[in-house]
Amino acid sequence: MTTQKRKIISFTKPLRIGFMVILIGFISCKEAKHEKQNSVPAPVKAELKSISINGDSFHYLDIGKGEPVVFVHGTVDDYRVWEAQMYAFAKNHRVIAYSRRFAYPNKQMINDSTDFSVTAHSKDLTAFIQELDVGPVHLVGHSFGAFTSLLTALEHPELLQSLTLGEPPIMSLLQNIPKGEELLNDFVGNVLIPTGEEFAKNNDEKAVELFIGGVLEDSLYFSKAAQKEKDLMLDNTLELRASVTRKNLLPPLACDDIKTVKIPVLLMKGDKSPEVLTAILDELHSCIDHSEFVILSNSSHGLAYENPVEFNKIVLDFINKN
Results as ranks from 00 to 15, higher is better:
residue 159 L to I: 08
residue 173 L to F: 14
residue 175 Q to C: 11
residue 153 A to V: 06
residue 189 G to E: 14
residue 197 E to F: 00
residue 159 L to Y: 04
residue 175 Q to S: 12
residue 132 L to G: 06
residue 193 I to S: 02
residue 130 Q to R: 13
residue 152 T to Q: 11
residue 141 G to I: 00
residue 134 V to P: 05
residue 187 F to T: 03
residue 156 H to Y: 08
residue 144 F to E: 13
residue 187 F to Y: 10
residue 128 F to C: 04
residue 155 E to K: 15
residue 156 H to K: 14
residue 179 K to G: 11
residue 166 G to P: 00
residue 181 E to L: 15
residue 197 E to C: 01
residue 157 P to W: 05
residue 199 F to I: 13
residue 189 G to L: 10
residue 201 K to A: 13
residue 186 D to T: 10
residue 176 N to T: 14
residue 128 F to M: 09
residue 147 F to K: 00
residue 180 G to D: 08
residue 156 H to Q: 14
residue 131 E to D: 11
residue 179 K to I: 13
residue 159 L to F: 04
residue 165 L to E: 04
residue 173 L to R: 12
residue 136 P to C: 07
residue 139 L to W: 11
residue 166 G to H: 01
residue 138 H to P: 09
residue 149 S to Y: 06
residue 135 G to V: 05
residue 163 L to K: 02
residue 150 L to I: 15
residue 181 E to D: 15
residue 142 H to I: 03
residue 156 H to E: 13
residue 144 F to H: 06
residue 171 M to L: 12
residue 198 E to R: 06
residue 167 E to L: 05
residue 145 G to Y: 03
residue 143 S to D: 00
residue 167 E to M: 06
residue 178 P to T: 08
residue 167 E to G: 06
residue 146 A to R: 00
residue 161 Q to P: 03
residue 169 P to Q: 01
residue 177 I to A: 03
residue 167 E to H: 02
residue 153 A to L: 05
residue 196 G to D: 04
residue 179 K to V: 13
residue 141 G to H: 04
residue 154 L to R: 12
residue 172 S to Q: 02
residue 191 V to I: 15
residue 181 E to I: 15
residue 193 I to P: 00
residue 173 L to V: 13
residue 187 F to W: 05
residue 141 G to A: 04
residue 191 V to F: 05
residue 151 L to M: 10
residue 143 S to A: 01
residue 161 Q to I: 04
residue 163 L to P: 02
residue 145 G to D: 03
residue 196 G to F: 00
residue 178 P to W: 08
residue 147 F to Y: 13
residue 129 I to P: 01
residue 156 H to P: 06
residue 171 M to T: 15
residue 179 K to R: 13
residue 180 G to I: 07
residue 170 I to H: 06
residue 154 L to P: 10
residue 171 M to A: 14
residue 140 V to W: 03
residue 192 L to C: 15
residue 159 L to S: 08
residue 190 N to Q: 12
residue 191 V to C: 15
residue 154 L to C: 08
residue 149 S to D: 06
residue 189 G to R: 04
residue 134 V to H: 04
residue 180 G to K: 06
residue 190 N to L: 07
residue 147 F to C: 04
residue 176 N to W: 07
residue 199 F to N: 07
residue 138 H to N: 14
residue 178 P to R: 05
residue 158 E to K: 07
residue 155 E to D: 09
residue 159 L to C: 11
residue 163 L to I: 05
residue 201 K to I: 07
residue 201 K to F: 06
residue 187 F to H: 03
residue 169 P to R: 00
residue 166 G to N: 04
residue 151 L to P: 01
residue 132 L to Q: 08
residue 131 E to N: 12
residue 177 I to E: 03
residue 165 L to M: 08
residue 137 V to M: 09
residue 197 E to W: 00
residue 155 E to F: 07
residue 149 S to K: 07
residue 168 P to Y: 01
residue 198 E to N: 08
residue 144 F to N: 07
residue 199 F to R: 04
residue 192 L to S: 12
residue 184 L to Q: 11
residue 151 L to K: 07
residue 169 P to N: 02
residue 197 E to L: 10
residue 131 E to G: 00
residue 172 S to G: 02
residue 139 L to A: 11
residue 196 G to N: 05
residue 152 T to K: 10
residue 179 K to F: 14
residue 183 L to D: 12
residue 137 V to K: 03
residue 160 L to E: 09
residue 141 G to R: 01
residue 191 V to A: 14
residue 168 P to H: 01
